[in-house]
Design a protein around this nucleic acid. Sequence first.
DNA 1: AGCTAGATTGTTAGCGCTCACAACGCCGTG
DNA 2: CACGGCGTTGTGAGCGCTAACAATCTAGCT
Lengths: 348, 348
Amino acid sequence: MAQSAEDVRPPTMADVAREAGVSHQTVSRVLSGHPNVRAATRDQVTVAIERLGYRRNSAARALVTRRTRTLGVIAVNTALYGPASTLTGLEEAAREEGYLVSTVSLRAGSGQGLKDAIDHLAAWGVEGVVAITPQRSHVQALAELDAPFPVVTVEGGHQLDLPSVSLDQELGARMVTEHLLAAGHGTVWHVAGPEDWLESEARAAGWRAVLEENGIRPPRVLAGDWSPLSGYRAGQELAGLALARRGATPVTAVFVANDQMALGVLRALREGGIRTPGQVAVAGFDDIPEAEYFPPPLTTVRQDFAAIGRRSIRLLVDHIEGRAKKAEHLLVQPQLIMRASTRPSSEA
Amino acid sequence: MAQSAEDVRPPTMADVAREAGVSHQTVSRVLSGHPNVRAATRDQVTVAIERLGYRRNSAARALVTRRTRTLGVIAVNTALYGPASTLTGLEEAAREEGYLVSTVSLRAGSGQGLKDAIDHLAAWGVEGVVAITPQRSHVQALAELDAPFPVVTVEGGHQLDLPSVSLDQELGARMVTEHLLAAGHGTVWHVAGPEDWLESEARAAGWRAVLEENGIRPPRVLAGDWSPLSGYRAGQELAGLALARRGATPVTAVFVANDQMALGVLRALREGGIRTPGQVAVAGFDDIPEAEYFPPPLTTVRQDFAAIGRRSIRLLVDHIEGRAKKAEHLLVQPQLIMRASTRPSSEA
DNA sequence: AGCTAGATTGTTAGCGCTCACAACGCCGTG
DNA sequence: CACGGCGTTGTGAGCGCTAACAATCTAGCT
C-alpha cells in the first residue's frame, strides 16, 4: 500500500545533504554560519535548502544543545493596559534577542496559580521567566518558589533577592505632587491603589515624601482598588469635603494613583457640581490612551513599556547566559504628561 | 579536575530508572499513565522521580513524537482591550488543552510582519497558529501565505477559506440600533471605524440593515479610526448638526463603533452644550472597563472573550489532530449592556 | 500438572541534530 | 621535494526520549 500524502515527513538535514551532494555536517555548518565553508559549497547547500523547503528541527537542536531558546512570561491581569503593554514590549525585545516567548496569564493572583504557571513553563523547557508581579504577595510567593531557571520580576519591587525591573513609581508620584504644589495648591490629597500592590505603596510614598519635604502634613489617604467605581466613591467623599468644611484641610488638588480611578473621581466631582480644574485639580497615573479624552483631559504619568520590556529581557538573558550573577534592580524613568485637569484656573 | 557545580545536568529517565531499580521504559510508562504497570512498581518510580526532582525533557519528547504541543498566537495591537482580552482567553483555553502558547505581537499590520511572525513561530515548531487579524488586509495576506500548519483566524471574517471564530459583530450592531429605535429615536447616526477593518464593516452593516428594515434611509456615515480623537472630531460635527439644522435629519441618537470613540463623541457633545442622553443618546461597542464610568455611563456591546478564546483553540486543535478538515466559521453571541447614555429622556 | 492468554517488564532502534575528531586536500617554506 | 599548517569536508557518537518488539511472569483453564 502506498503511503498517503499525510505521511510525508518534512525534509531532514540528511535530505538536504543528499540533494546538495555534501555531508549533513556541511549543511549544519552553512546553517549556523560557520566561516570555513567554501562559497561554492555554501551556495549549493542554500539552493538545496530552498528547493526542498527545509527547516531545522528545533526539537532535535534543543535536545543536543540543551538550549530551547524559549522564555516564559507570567502575567496577572493581562487585559489591563499596563500589563498588556509590558507584555508587548517583552515579546518584541525577546524576538530581537532570538528567543521565543511563551505566556501564561493568571487571573486572581494566588500563590498556587503562580506555582502551576512555573511548572507549566518548566515542563516545556523555558530557559528563564519574566514575571509581571505587581502585588507583594506574588513576589513573595515567587521568591519562595525557587524555580529551576532564572526569574526576573517586573514591577516586583527591589526588596527581595530577585533581579527586577520597575518603573520608578516613586519618582512619578513625586513629579505629579510637585507639579500640583508648584501650581499653587496648599496641599494634595491622594486616592491610593489597593494595599498589597507595590505600585500603590510606591506612589503613595512619593506623594507623602514631597509633602513632608515641603513641610505639609499629608492629609488622610483615601483607599481605592484601581477600579473606576472605587475612584467614584473616593471622589464623592472628596466632593463632600471640598464643599462642606472649608475650614479643614481644603481639597483643591488630588493625585489619584491610576487613570481609571481618576475617571471615577472626575465623575463624582462633576456630579457634585465641582469644576475641574477650576475648583479641584486632578492628576492620574499610567497615561492610558483614553486619558487624553477624559473630561477634562487628564494630567498623568507615562511609562515607557517598550523600555521596561527591553531591559527585562536583557537582564534575563544576561542571567541565562551566565553574564550576570547578582540580583540587579533596574529603574526606568517615568514622564509627566501635563494636561487640562491640573491647569491653573486662570487658564481653565 | 572536579566538575564545577554548574555542570551538573538535570536527571534523565535513565537516572530515575536506576534509582527505582527498573528500566527506563517503565519510567516512561508511569509518566504517560500507561495502565499495565503494577501499582508497587508505579510507586517506586514515583518516589524516585520525586527524590531526584526529575522532569521529562520536552525536546527529546518532541523529537520522537513529532509533537511540540505548542501553539502560536499572532496578534496586532495587543495593548488594546479587545485583543488583550482575547489573548488571555486563548492562553487559558490552550493551557487547559495541554498546549503551550507562544505569542508574537505585531505593531503596524504589514504583510511582511505577518510573514516574519509565521516564520518565527515555524522555526520553533508550533503545531498551529491562531491569528487575531481584525483587518481585511491581514486576513488576505494570511490566506496567501500558505503556512506549514493549520491557522485559525479570530475576527478575521468568514469570506476566506481559513477557519475562523468571530463575535457576531453584525448582530451586536443590530441590537444597539434596534435598542435606540425602540427608545423612540427617528433615526440613528453612525460613527464608523477605519475602513480596512472587518469589525467596522460588520458593525456598519448591522446598523444599516436595521435602519433599512425599518424603512429609514441611513444618514451619512461619519468616519473614525477607533481613537478617542477621531470620535471627538465626529462628535463636533454631530454637535453642529444637532444644533444647527433641525430641518434636516435630526441627530438624537448615535451608535459609535467602539467605546473609545464614543468617549470622544461624548466630550464633543458636552462641549457643544448638548446633554446626553437628554438631547442625544450615544451607544458604543466593546464594553471596555471604563465604559461604565463615562459621562454618562455608556450603553455598549460586550464580547465574551473567554468563549472566543476557547472556541478558537478547540477549532485549531481539531485541525491539528485531524478531527476537522473544512474551514468552519464560528460566531460568538454578543450581549447588549444598557446604561444611562441611551436612557429615554424621561428618566434622564 | 501442563498449557496458554494476558499482564508486566526489558531490549533495541531510531527521532534529527551538533560536537569532537579524523581525513583530505592545498599552500608555502626549508 | 618533503613537510607542517591551515582551510575544508566527512565520520561517528550520542543528546533523552518513545515505539515496537521480545522476554518473562502470572493466573486461569482443561
